[in-house]
Design a protein around this nucleic acid. Structure first.
Lengths: 260, 260
DNA sequence: CGTCCATTTGACCAAGCTCAACCGCCGTGG
DNA sequence: CCACGGCGGTTGAGCTTGGTCAAATGGACG
């Protein structure tokens, strides 16, 4: 079974989505095959490239295979708000599934590879594989909670706490795919990007980062960030990891709902 | 008395959830039956009552039949952040579906009636009714976008713009269930609640509301709010209605998998 | 009539913004 | 090979939005 899961797709390797979902729930061969079949051609993006622009046609979702992207909006009042970051294994563009035109823009932060998922293919997946539908619903709910954490941070926390939370969140999400426990990572974001994600100006991001460095909370060398005392940062910011675990016990056992 | 008659499901009337979903997609008899069967006993809440506390056991979701609730968190740093408001027809508690303990608290804003939906029953629904799974996914995505609008507001907009957006958003959501076009509504929220939803203090909410009144944007009589010039407020705040329409064209046709 | 709670108002304060300049690195073109 | 230009990062000075603290008003209800 495990072997079948590892090598069942036509190309011989699994998409990052199957791998990530398998962290949360043991998938059947059919389910993995359906996830692979849903995904269309791959597409390469270079850093800064726009995958979908706001109000552009939204016919497909995408699975991130490699690299980072972010979703963002441009308020009428000027500026930009980054809503979240997307990593390998994420199903993205879901923000736009409820409309014909994209509600948010998707932009590559680093060089990326994504695969195309036509909306109708996702509809088919939902119809054929109820457990996967439930699992995707749960993962989306977890991402919603991660966003609500950011909302809380912007509403009720200081610049330093927000920054601490964001760095911890990025690291937590990277650990899901990176496997082992890491305490540093490359941050392909400018300070302006961080500011747009946290509702701060780049100037204030800079001052805050330096203050955190001065206090020994983090260390920076180039674009690499190390979290020096994770426990202290967590206590300071109130961060909660929303990525490590996703409850799936409420899903029906694997046999149910598979088309005969 | 009247309420009980309107919503007692054995008698054959539909739950608020079925009614709302039917606005977005024409449902089959089986689908409506499944939605009704999924819902357990109803429960009455009085204003201010806590339906689920943070970190409490999260075994069920709920459907709002009547009244308003809000979901909220209590950051370690003190205070409170209201994450969103929930109205008749909403499936709530989904924030906690990915974990065994509730990620956010649910509190009644006004007197409410909710029905219980065990998580496992939702899992069954997903397995049996793929179109409903897809529709619920789309509705959740729309709610996520509404939350991201709030995130944008908190990150990049002034207090007056945030308040304008929130009032417009509440009115837009009420229109989904209220049917016709309304231009005023009862707001069962204190100014402290508004502040907790927008990341402001109650003092500043008060000043901002009075300023909006003075400028003729809104009118208040007691807890009733009237939007005087909706078009102007929309232009001022950049509000986008995320509730009116949900695209369902990507869902498979109704016949799939079910013998009608 | 007194208590409680939401609203209102005033005086003062500070976190973070604006504007502006400067530095350092790197890719590019002459 | 070096000058130039652009971008990201860093730093300073002054300002604004919204927060804090405190107190008064006013309605609802026992």
């Amino acid at each position: 079974m495990v072997d079948a899961m590892m090598f069942s797709s036509p190309a011989g390797t699994q998409s990052a989505l199957s791998i990530r979902l398998a962290h949360y729930l043991s998938l059947t061969v059919e389910e993995v095959a359906a996830l692979e079949a849903m995904q269309g051609p791959r597409r390469r993006l270079i850093a800064g490239e726009v995958l979908i622009a706001t109000d552009g046609a939204a016919e497909s979702l995408f699975v991130v295979q490699q690299g980072w992207l972010h979703s963002s909006t441009r308020p009428r009042t000027g500026g930009r708000q980054i809503l979240g970051f997307h990593y390998p294994g994420d199903l993205i563009g879901t923000e736009s599934i409820a409309w014909a035109r994209a509600a948010t823009a998707l932009t590559a932060v680093s060089d990326c590879i994504v695969t195309d998922v036509p909306k109708a293919a996702l509809g088919e997946l939902f119809a054929q594989h109820g457990r996967l539908a439930g699992l995707l619903y749960a993962v989306a709910a977890a991402e919603g909670v991660a966003m609500s954490d950011r909302l809380t941070a912007m509403g009720r926390m200081t610049a330093m706490q927000r920054l601490a939370m964001l760095l911890l969140d990025i690291m937590a999400r990277l650990r899901v795919t990176a496997g082992g426990v890491i305490d540093s990572f490359d941050l392909p974001l400018t300070q302006a990007d961080l500011g747009d994600a946290l509702g701060l100006t780049k100037v204030h991001v800079n001052r805050t980062l330096r203050a955190m460095e001065a206090e020994g909370m983090i260390a920076r060398t180039g674009r690499r960030v190390r979290i020096c005392d994770e426990a202290a940062l967590i206590a300071f910011s109130g961060f909660v990891d929303r990525h490590a675990v996703v409850a799936t016990d409420w899903l029906p056992p694997r046999a149910l709902g598979v088309a005969a």
